[in-house]
Design a protein around this nucleic acid. Structure first.
Lengths: 361, 361
DNA sequence: ATGAAAGCGCTAACAA
DNA sequence: TTGTTAGCGCTTTCAT
């Protein structure tokens, strides 16, 4: 119970030498007995194991890593763990990694490229063999350089880089991309609204430059076009993601105009905010206005009303990322995997009001 | 772009020796220049830094750890990252750790003690200086032994152990506990229901043996007693936690009896399930039945209706855990910190129906 | 100011 | 079967 150190964790640990001494064998023998992959007589092994247990010995992972057979470590980096979507992806990565006996580290960047770089650097130092970057980004020159550097650096030591939901700056780069087909998903859900009879649909939550959102907006526009609507029929409000953004933007939009009968939200969180704003305005969903989301987060069915949305199997995305990355060495350059999505219909969509729309403000 | 290895991450990295050679200095000088805490002439240092950058050198964290000044690493272990509550705690830990320049690893156990042990073992091997175990548990003999072992083992190397929301088996043990006052929180929220006029209140989501839930049940009973109700007035259904459990249990309860006017849920997820079950039964909240939750997860205000619940600042719990653990070395034995909670009133509570209750089934 | 050398804890040849 | 030795990449005395 002594605790006289100022630095946590700086006291000496039991080493294999002590185990060896206690068992009356050499370090080499102790090592062999402990690792179990070399022939060691049962009697000797038992003595060694006993000594190790008595001393509560645990191997020093750093020493082990240094000499060669270090632990396999994967790293996921997300914007924040409290986002239900990212949490699910991280859980998928962690689960798949654990299944294979890999250690999994998760890092949060808060969306800051600087922190992302630091974290990747850190992972290189720690010898991570697999780095998974998750989430849409704005694809500017800085991004391209950053990722090209990660990819090259990681690849030079044989580590893998996978981009989840963000593009590879160049197909030649040694990185793997795994993502959902955002455009198809958005097209489908917008189509669902169109089929219900809606014609004036707004997209809430654009984020110009962000690859994921741009794709969803593109899908939204494509659906409109497919149904014979002119380009001017599209109305996208670029409020970005997050519940707060959705709440504010929807509130403002409602004050400004009511010339629409449905909204497709950039994701379920902005849908949550939108739903609240709509209720605050005294309107009912789906009677007055239909709303759809994106991602189908675990609590989307508990919204008021239960949200019709696009299901993106996030945990599967995480699992797929590690599975594919670890599968064939041939993955390296430019391999691109698209995961499918589908609509889940709940109660937030109805035909537009028969009077043709909301009462003008 | 060559990628002929079968083992990810097994290719050689640039070492400090190569940097030294390129800069025309010895390894020792290179090391000094790179670490920056030894006097090195500006000219020499510049050459070394240049060489390092040209080679894209990153130090080998394992070698560094081995020789002494390894990176400070904290580990949080939770049941699952996709639980909003745990995610927030993990985010708090990660944020506070990052603020101090520590690396943070999060592990998920799925609630399996076996995996918990393995993960702690792993963290010992990796040299974690701080491990934080989060979440209520059933406090049996196995638990006591397990934790006593963790505590002793970690302490023997000067590492810290903190228990978040779970008890220390013995105050003498070198572990720190930080938790919310579950009993007070449950007492307060139950009192809120009582004040609204409810007398027949059921607790949904007991988990006998689980310390956190038992404390909430105790708070619930205490509130009942304070309002002069006899012990028999208490009705707790032990369905455990999770949305699915709440959904099922509430559905069954409603089929069995309607002799109650309010329910306090074990946490917000079971409240979500209960809300759904109640709606499925054709009843309205709060007109027919009042419901309260526990934890105030981020989406609780988006439930139907917005949920009145107990706010437990989860992120702050995580931050507090690392802050306190790292503060004074005197923390070691038996220090116990209780964090306060408060009620957040939304729209899921109303006075009981004036006819005195639900229509008997 | 800088280099040579020792050594952190471990595993893997290489001998015996 | 077991022990001896070398060496992983780095920092740090100890000399120079």
């Amino acid at each position: 119970m002594e605790n006289d150190m100022t630095e946590p964790g700086s006291r000496r640990r039991v080493t294999i030498r002590e185990v060896a001494e206690r068992a009356g064998v050499s370090m080499a023998t102790a090592s062999r007995a402990l690792s179990g992959n070399h022939p060691v007589p049962a009697a000797t092994r038992a003595r060694v194991l006993r000594a190790a247990r008595d001393l509560d010995y645990v191997a020093n992972a750093h020493a082990r890593a240094l000499v060669g057979g270090g632990r396999k470590m994967a790293a996921v980096v997300v914007r924040q763990v409290t986002s239900p979507f990212y949490a699910q992806v991280a859980e998928g990565v962690e689960a798949e990694a654990a299944d294979r006996g890999w250690l999994c580290v998760v890092g949060a960047t808060g969306g800051d490229p600087q922190r992302e770089m630091e974290f990747v650097q850190l992972m290189r130092e720690e010898g991570a063999r697999l780095v998974i970057l998750v989430g849409g980004v704005v694809e500017d020159e800085a991004y391209r350089e950053r990722v090209a550097h990660y990819a090259q650096a990681l690849d030079s030591t044989g580590a893998r880089l996978v981009l989840c939901g963000r593009p590879a700056p160049d197909p030649e780069i040694p990185a793997l991309v795994v993502e959902f087909d955002n455009e198809a998903g958005a097209r489908a859900i917008t189509g669902h609204l169109l089929s219900a009879g809606h014609r004036r649909i707004v997209f809430l939550g654009g984020l110009p430059g962000n690859t994921a959102l741009d794709a969803r907006v593109a899908g939204y526009r494509a659906a409109l076009a497919e149904h014979g609507l002119p380009p001017e029929a599209a109305r996208v409000v670029d409020c970005g993601l997050g519940r707060a953004a959705g709440l504010r933007a929807m509130g403002e939009l409602l004050k400004e105009t009511r010339e629409f009968t449905a909204v497709v939200a950039g994701d379920d969180m902005v849908a949550a905010g939108a739903l609240r704003a709509i209720a605050d305005a005294g309107l009912a969903v789906p009677a007055d206005l239909s709303v759809v989301g994106y991602n189908d987060i675990p609590l989307a069915e508990d919204f008021n009303p239960p949200l019709t949305t696009v299901r993106t199997p996030a945990e599967e995305l995480g699992r797929a990322a590690v599975r594919i990355a670890l599968r064939d060495p041939e993955h390296a350059a430019g391999s691109h995997h698209l995961l499918g999505t589908h609509i889940v219909v709940r109660r937030s969509v109805a035909p537009p009001p028969t009077d043709g729309g909301l009462t003008p403000v």
